[in-house]
Amino acid sequence: MERKLSPATIVLYVVLGILVILYLMPAYMALVTALKSPAEISLPTAWEWPSVINWSSFSEALDLLKPNLVNSLILTVCATALSTVLGSLNGYVFSKWTFRGSEIIFTLFLFGMFIPYQVILIPLFQTLRAMNLYGGLPGLILAHVVYGLPITSLIFRNFYAQIPTALIESARLDGAGFFSIYTRVVFPLSIPGFVVTSLWQFTQIWNEFLWGITLTRHSENPITVGLAQLAGGQAVSWNLPMAGSILAAIPVLLIYVFLGRYFIRGLLAGSVKG
């Protein structure tokens, strides 16, 4: 499209400019507040840049949240890896090895994606206790893997649907079986699928709160729970919760800024039928 500086274009840029400011406002507020010393924080001057930059909020918040960050990292990496691998295998079956009733199973899988998690909370809690997994990260990982299956299977199914069936057929004629087709033909083609799925899962699991607070003991709390604790107590020194928020946001934010394209693809796969 040709671009010229018509009044309409000016209006466009002005409107976009205003929107950008509005969208960045909370981020600005978080940063400014985090950089102030507790004494300087007061409601009337909340928007002003700190007179003295106080980096120690970050180191203090990091000290407090370090165990939570480590927990979240272990949790997220494990659960993401497991649910992505399983999802890839499921997607392979759902797209290339359909059998009678596989669509209905797939649809039943998808249903698991949309349930409010409160509805399974009590039995999940009891089951993990019965399995002796309550309180620690393994139980939480299990929950995230299971409830991650619908979305990962969906993304991979839609992704593999794009691999021509002819490719599979010819591999089969060469004598390849179910697993060797997967490892030789499908898997090498699925790197983008893995990226999309694991990014999606990473963000979801990193950001989860309800299970974190109900299923883990204090020393295994993930970052969201740690942050809620930090922010819930003394509302007086707001620099700490703000610095904590920024720390908790950084991993997902980085993923998003640098791998944004894949992230958007994940979003689309999560919501639009392929």
Binding site: A27, L227, A249, I255
Partner: peptide
């Protein structure tokens, strides 16, 4: 970007 943040943040 707001979409990538957790509700807690």
């Amino acid at each position: 970007y707001p979409m990538s943040l957790s509700f807690i943040v």
